[in-house]
Amino acid sequence: MTRFFPVGDSALVVEFGDEIDPAINRRVHALTRLLSLDPLDGVAECAPTYRSLLVRYDPLALDYRAVAEWAQSKLSRAESLRPEGVRRIEVPTVYGGERGPDLEFVAQHNGLSPQEVIRIHSGAEYTVYMMGFTPGYPYMGKLDPAIAAPRLETPRTRVPAGSVGIAGLQTGIYPIDSPGGWRIIGFTPLALFDPNREPPFLFAPGDAVRFVPP
């Protein structure tokens, strides 16, 4: 069931569920797209996540009801909208070695060889469910449970930009050097975030991504 909640006095959230589920996420992105096609003055932005959409608005220009009604009016179409024009992005990735220090762990944890982990990780197409944590960080899934791995107990203080990681049933890439607790299995030379480039972000929520070994 879809629910609306205020998030303070300047935002509201449209919640489609409370789980990581491709069908729920597709509805989130469908509503995001429909709202962007018919913008409402005073709405600052719409930020999709796994299972909900955050709409920020200017409380000097709009009240909660007006924003909720605008979002509500697109909801039925979002239920039936078919994903179209999904961007497909290939990410050249070097697995293991110094820049993929946890590949061995992920393999052992799952009773696989490193080569099998690489084959499974690079053999699937992932959806960018949402972006967060640091500028340009894509949360992608769903990962094959055969290569799932828990986060580090103690996060690293510095994970280099370009590091490809696994956490639970998600995979992601670090856009900038930052602390991080995901298991790092590889590295891509692609720049996920460059504020001086247009567009600055390599990915957007809803994109389809494939990792490509050399």
Partner: peptide
């Protein structure tokens, strides 16, 4: 734990 969702200043 919840499935991550959006936050604002003041959350």
């Amino acid at each position: 734990d919840i499935v991550s969702d959006g936050m604002v200043r003041g959350s």
